[in-house]
């Protein structure tokens, strides 16, 4: 859709923001957030980030979708979030994981290593395998890859199967995104092999996903 067409099909962003702030019911907030997310205007970012703190999961999902759609334009607003607001931070991790902007690196590493909620660690693990590094100079690219790899390898020992599953997906994404140095490549594969091992503590679904990742990385 062209910018002109979008302007015609979408009320002014200020009106949509006002509607979110006016919403006085759970359903009303959900609908207003969906409308604001759909306008795809970077000016909506800070209001969408505010919605993450409203303790309304439906609206937060819509806001996360909208923020991911805004992409790098939403990152500043996300990083300004109050770190004490735990609920909002959990949603912000999901948004940053979906956007893949390297400015989210520290928050994702911290979330994967320390967040108490498995759903947040899970999103962070996937996000660390999906950062967009293409435009960076090689030395910076390698440094960020190394940070992602270290964080993901440490999380192969996470106590929750779903986080280890996401770690597999993150490691596979990291390896596929851009070439790794041989030592890093070896460490990454060793991490996947640990998660492929049959054991009572490691559910079959994690083993199967790790096998699939190893197959993808070493075509026969």
């Amino acid at each position: 859709m062209s910018a002109a067409a979008m302007e015609m099909s979408c009320p002014p962003t200020a009106e949509l923001i006002a509607a979110v702030q006016r919403a006085d019911s759970s359903q009303g907030l959900l609908l207003a957030t969906q409308a604001l997310a759909a306008c795809a205007d970077p000016a909506a970012a800070s209001t969408l980030v505010e919605v993450l703190g409203f303790n309304n999961p439906g609206a937060a999902v819509a806001a996360v979708d909208g923020l991911i759609h805004l992409g790098p334009g939403a990152v500043d607003a996300l990083l300004q979030l109050d770190p004490e607001n735990y609920g909002a931070r959990a949603w912000a991790v999901r948004a940053l994981a979906g956007i893949g902007d390297v400015r989210g690196l520290e928050l994702l590493v911290d979330a994967l290593g320390t967040d108490v909620a498995a759903s947040v660690r899970r999103a962070a693990a996937k996000g660390l395998g999906a950062l967009r590094l293409g435009d960076l100079e090689p030395a910076r690219q390698a440094a960020i890859q190394a940070r992602c790899l270290d964080a993901l390898l440490a999380a192969t020992a996470d106590g929750e199967w779903v986080v280890r599953y996401a770690v597999v997906v993150g490691l596979e994404g990291l390896a596929k995104a851009s070439p790794l140095e041989p030592a890093a490549q070896g460490a990454l594969k060793a991490g996947l092999q640990r998660l492929q091992v049959v054991s009572a503590e490691n559910p079959t679904v994690v083993q199967l996903r790790a096998q699939l990742a190893l197959d993808h990385l070493s075509p026969p």
């Binding site: 999961p57 759903s119 899970r122 199967w161 779903v162 559910p203 079959t204 679904v205």
Partner: peptide, 15 residues
């Protein structure tokens, strides 16, 4: 519903 629960359900479908 939450993705967490869908993931548990899908693990059941796999296993």
């Amino acid at each position: 519903a939450e993705n967490s629960l869908k993931l548990i359900a899908l693990r059941g479908l796999v296993e």
